[in-house]
């Protein structure tokens, strides 16, 4: 269980709190969507949840205890712009192995090619770097993944392939998933429940959605 208890956060030199009293509880194996307009604090909340920012008040707990801050973190965060999350002086192979050797199944599922390993980030496309970032985040001991607009800049086919890889990892390792997006069409097929993250409203509003039948789709054939 990943829990956020009554989080408050205000950026330095800013008047109003961007996050004021938000709570969220995510079970393992569950997918929760956060939906809202840009600037409403979705990304700030994601960073609080992953422990990248410390809340002014309130706390985030993982299985009842505080988030660890050393070693490979059990709560991983993925961003919309992966090119800013990699060291520009490292080659792709080193970037991918930053937290230890990635799962071979994951490397396969993401379509990462050995020919990329010698390249620097500026020699890879955004979609290629995002694949490395996903491989670097998803280990057998990753218990929660927070995907902040992970596929917003990708074309439809890459988007479907990457989500397919993430969802099959989730099913296999019983991982909790928080999907942040402004695209309701994307959230609906992915999520078990969706939370409307509106301007200044600290209260969660849950939108009931039909749970899709027949599970996650396989690859499409004519």
């Amino acid at each position: 269980m990943l829990d956020a208890w009554d989080l408050h956060y205000r950026y330095p030199r800013s008047e109003a709190e961007i996050i004021s009293g938000v709570s969220l509880h995510v079970r393992r194996g569950e997918t929760v969507g956060l939906f809202g307009p840009s600037g409403c604090g979705k990304s700030t909340f994601a960073q609080l949840l992953a422990g990248h920012l410390a809340p002014d008040s309130g706390k985030v707990t993982l299985g009842g205890s505080a988030l660890p801050c050393m070693g490979r973190l059990p709560v991983q965060l993925l961003f919309q712009h992966p090119e800013f999350t990699v060291n520009p002086r490292w080659r792709a192979g080193k970037i991918m192995n930053e937290g230890g050797a990635p799962l071979p199944d994951m490397v396969d599922a993401l379509g990462i090619l050995p020919s990329w390993y010698r390249r620097f980030p500026h020699e890879l496309s955004g979609g290629e770097i995002q694949r490395l970032a996903i491989a670097r985040a998803l280990y057998a001991d990753t218990r929660f993944l927070i995907a902040d607009e992970m596929s917003a800049m990708l074309d439809a086919i890459t988007q479907a392939s990457l989500w397919h890889a993430v969802k099959s990892h989730q099913a296999r390792y019983d991982m909790g998933l928080v999907v942040i997006s402004h695209d309701m069409d994307l959230l609906e097929p992915l999520c078990d429940r969706i939370i409307d993250f509106q301007w200044g409203t600290p209260v969660e509003r849950e939108i009931p959605i039909p749970v899709s039948q027949g599970g996650w789709p396989d690859s499409w054939d004519d």
């Binding site: 993401l110 379509g111 439809a156 086919i157 988007q159 479907a160 392939s161 989500w163 397919h164 695209d183 069409d185 994307l186 609906e188 097929p189 992915l190 789709p217 396989d218 690859s219 499409w220 054939d221």
Partner: peptide, 17 residues
């Protein structure tokens, strides 16, 4: 394939990547 890959149309990934 592009049509089938849209989230609202089944979200089917491509076989190759």
């Amino acid at each position: 394939g592009l049509w089938h890959a849209l989230p609202q149309n089944g979200f089917h990934p491509f076989r190759g990547l």
